[in-house]
């Protein structure tokens, strides 16, 4: 019975670890079925959005309301903890590198739709330590709420202010819960997902549907014949902070 304290701790610790690993057996069992996308799904190699600022002006509020309602975005009522997937802002804040003192009144007061740019070269994807933020096969920068640890590194990395953090339980602040989409819980980050869940069942993004005058064009950036590519070829478009090399995929016709 000559066993030192150190040896006891060593053997004991190893045994506890081994016992703790037992449940892994079940996890590795696997599922009998298989998976496939919905046959109705809208497909693209690289989703992108062109916003015609003049055409969208009257539908702005409706677009944001549709988005926030469908995605159970809460109205916290405190700007410091505000959660927004899309919002309205002005030229001097969205395009601050291009603003100058003699901007015409019309442009100065014009309302723009702001949302996640789903950057080709997204900083938030790069910094996320768990791949909770990732880019899916169709070029959409997605959030996996199941995996997010709430470190908020992505918020620091995003140069567009497109990300929101749930500082508190959002449920009490959702006016009417949409049962088709989950809410979020306190402690995770969220943002626009280009309505990946709607594209997957063949629907247009909510904001595109709500822009009755055709103010938002949505399509495949890698397809030269897509609506977005035609719009980009026909109009002069601008983007937010192109100098950072993030290659945003939301374009504005002004």
């Amino acid at each position: 019975m000559d066993i030192s304290r150190r040896k006891f701790l060593k053997v004991g610790g190893a045994s506890i670890l081994a016992l703790g690993a037992l449940p892994l057996r079940n996890v590795l069992a696997g599922t009998p079925g298989s998976y496939k996308p919905d046959s109705k799904a809208k497909k693209a190699k690289n989703w992108a959005m062109v916003i015609d600022v003049n055409k969208l002006e009257d539908d702005l509020e409706a677009c944001i309301a549709a988005c926030h309602k469908i995605h159970n975005v809460p109205d916290i009522g405190n700007p410091k903890e505000e959660i927004k997937w899309a919002w309205i802002d002005t030229y001097e804040h969205l395009f601050l590198d291009n603003k100058h003192d003699y901007l015409d009144e019309e442009m100065k007061n014009k309302k723009f739709l702001a949302l996640c740019n789903h950057c080709e070269n997204a900083a938030c994807v790069r910094v996320c330590p768990t791949k909770a933020t990732f880019k899916n096969a169709e070029g959409i920068v997605m959030m996996d709420f199941h995996r997010c640890i709430g470190c908020r590194y992505c918020i620091a990395a995003c140069p567009y202010g497109a990300r929101s953090f749930n500082f508190r339980d959002p449920r009490p602040y959702i006016e009417e819960i949409n049962p088709e989409f989950p809410t979020r819980m306190k402690g995770v980050v969220e943002k626009c997902n280009f309505c990946a869940e709607r594209l997957a069942v063949g629907l247009q993004p909510a904001c595109v549907e709500a822009s009755k005058n055709g103010g938002i064009i949505f399509g495949d950036l890698d397809d030269p014949n897509s609506e977005v590519r035609k719009a980009l070829a026909a109009h002069h478009t601008i983007q937010r902070k192109t100098n950072l090399g993030t290659q945003p995929k939301v374009f504005y016709i002004v």
């Binding site: 768990t130 995996r147 997010c148 640890i149 709430g150 995770v188």
Partner: peptide
């Protein structure tokens, strides 16, 4: 962390 109970995700993923 907002979700400290998930901290091991940094090692799992």
């Amino acid at each position: 962390m907002g979700m400290p109970m998930r901290v091991l995700n940094m090692i799992l993923h």
